[in-house]
Design a protein around this nucleic acid. Sequence first.
DNA 1: TATCAATTTCTGTTTTTACCGAAGAAACTG
DNA 2: CAGTTTCTTCGGTAAAAACAGAAATTGATA
Lengths: 181, 181
Amino acid sequence: MPLLDHPDAKAFLLHWGEMGTQWGVNRSVSQVHALLYLSHHPLPADEIVEQLGLARSNVSTALKELQGYGIVRRVHVEGDRRDHFLAELDLWEMLTRIVAERKRREIDPTIALLNELAQRMAQDESAPPHVRERITRMHEFMSTLGNWYEQVRVLPKPTLVTLMKLGGKIARFLPGSKDKP
Amino acid sequence: MPLLDHPDAKAFLLHWGEMGTQWGVNRSVSQVHALLYLSHHPLPADEIVEQLGLARSNVSTALKELQGYGIVRRVHVEGDRRDHFLAELDLWEMLTRIVAERKRREIDPTIALLNELAQRMAQDESAPPHVRERITRMHEFMSTLGNWYEQVRVLPKPTLVTLMKLGGKIARFLPGSKDKP
DNA sequence: TATCAATTTCTGTTTTTACCGAAGAAACTG
DNA sequence: CAGTTTCTTCGGTAAAAACAGAAATTGATA
């Protein structure tokens, strides 16, 4: 019995699909992801095609994309020659992988470009000073964020969870703070 | 002399425009933003039209959108009847506003939906247990992140900067850590 | 290594989104 | 209050993205 017969499951899937489009991911990709996330066993491509009513080729592309993010993986199912696909169920893991991949694809190249522009403009007499300064600022800003992220991402997961639970209280532990608990 | 005559300024603007599309913002909007960010004085809509070669109407829409994010504001220029527009130059401020607005537009409604679905399924005998559990998990996860964000966003900016500079070292200050500096 | 199922790539079509120009509304000037 | 100027809204069109189906490739099995 198809998973999506249940109206709430379907509602989730449709909403997830729309969310995707708002963040620059195509609807098929995010729908496939939603379906796999809700499924309790790995699904072969065919079944995804059936349940979502997408073209086979489309599903293939979506799966490849999701594997690129590292949030879906291929698994072998005993006695079946077809590939089956399984979504990452640990949501924290899922999030960190998506963020890591988007940084790699979009943020890192942007920082690289800004670096190049800033360096070239530093030598360039004809460059308007405001423009030079603002591009440099943007470069510094994004680099700072990037470096922060690289440091935080390697912290052990339990540490991250602790930090998350602390929320705003984290400020109390800062060196200069008079407001210890 | 038009700002975009300089090739590096233009490169920035074009890249920024593409970045936008990748994150679900239309190209015109992000280009207008880039132009205002690089400009050292407020620009009237006409001039944006001229420099970017967009339709007047399009620029109007883009400006409205950017004002919706709170990263561009209208200013009055002495002796000119037209509205002029100015981009937020503090990049930290810019980022927090964008994040706040996207949360408001996309994350909050998602959490609301997940909440609704989770609640309904809790009563619903026909709901497959896996589905119920996974939707509930997703709801909890996003709520946790949302609450964390709400706490952190209200911290004073200097505190945030300190936290950012600490990077991974923040872990040293956690209660259980043996690894004090 | 030949066969066949499964998967991916390619190409043309459909759907969606972005965008322009025209018309309307609002704000200001003399 | 008539005439301008500026700004926004709307409907149609152009551009881009998503998608389906056919063709090609891969890879497992015997």
